[in-house]
Design a binder for these strands. Structure first.
Length: 259
DNA sequence: ATGGCCGGCGCAGCCGGA
């Protein structure tokens, strides 16, 4: 089965691109970030007509995540535990039954954290600590688990075309990278990096001709638990979607798993 | 030449993104 993460940067502006990509690639599960929509405004019926179940966790104007699945959801959890005062819609989790058991999927939109020196950066780091705590609990279940989404973290220098451009950026701060490594060190695998040493990007800024100059970064990641890692067949990035009309600034990242 | 964009909201121009 094919499981994908994609920051679509606004579902209302991207619905035609999303439907076209769904028709062409027919993924089984899709985690979407930055839907920038309340649940009632999400174009659910158009997506359902392609054979998907839809679960959303939205808010007005910003953030917002969703999961699409051809298989029915077993149970859905909205919001990242650990801070009842956090009103930002950045996490959704669901299970689907497969022939060999159950697979759990967490779709996340990790805070950007810029600019440094504001409350946004400590919020990012606190959010990462909550994610680590939650991931540790989920790993204890010893099931196939995927935590995928827009992590807003450049893990290593190879993951940026020009690392020096990001030295003052929250995405490439030592604290951000260390928290990402601590998450991995719980027992997760960075699925894409486990299959290639190549420089591969998932985001190109709209500004300054970044796409044309290939000034990209890799910030959208699929983390797999040991039970999911053992099932990996192939990992890839649908880079060509960035060249479509009215593209998102992110592209889909996918993994094929044995069921 | 070292800047260049985009979406949401809501109907001008600001906020947020990365």
């Amino acid at each position: 089965m094919k499981i994908v993460t994609w920051n679509i940067n606004g579902i209302k502006a991207r619905i035609e691109v999303l439907l076209q990509w769904l028709r062409e690639t027919s993924p089984d599960i899709v985690c979407l970030q930055e839907i920038k929509s309340v649940d009632e405004g999400f174009p659910r019926t158009e997506i359902e007509s392609l054979g998907y179940n839809v679960a959303t966790h939205g808010q007005k104007g910003f953030n917002g995540v969703a999961i699409l699945s051809k298989l029915p959801f077993e149970d859905i959890s909205r919001g990242l535990p650990g801070d009842p005062d956090d009103v930002q819609a950045r996490y959704i989790e669901a299970s689907v039954a497969i022939s060999s058991g159950v697979i759990r999927v967490g779709g996340l939109y990790l805070p950007n954290g810029n600019p440094l020196g504001t409350e946004k950066f400590p919020y990012k780091l606190r959010w990462m600590e909550r994610l680590i705590d939650h991931a540790r609990q989920q790993l204890a279940l010893e099931q196939p688990l995927l935590l995928l989404g827009d992590y807003n973290v450049i893990p290593d220098p190879i993951d940026a075309r020009t690392p020096a451009n990001w030295s003052g950026d929250a995405l490439f701060q030592p604290e951000s990278r260390q928290a990402f490594r601590r998450l991995l060190n719980l027992g997760f695998t960075d699925a894409l990096r486990s299959t290639t040493d190549e420089q591969i990007f998932t985001f190109w800024d709209y500004q300054a001709g970044c796409w044309q100059r290939n000034e990209g970064i890799r910030i959208d990641h699929i983390l797999t638990s040991p039970q999911a890692t053992d099932r990996i067949i192939e990992v890839g990035v649908d880079k060509y979607v960035r060249g479509w009309d009215k593209p998102s600034d992110h592209v889909p990242v996918w993994v094929k798993l044995r069921t």
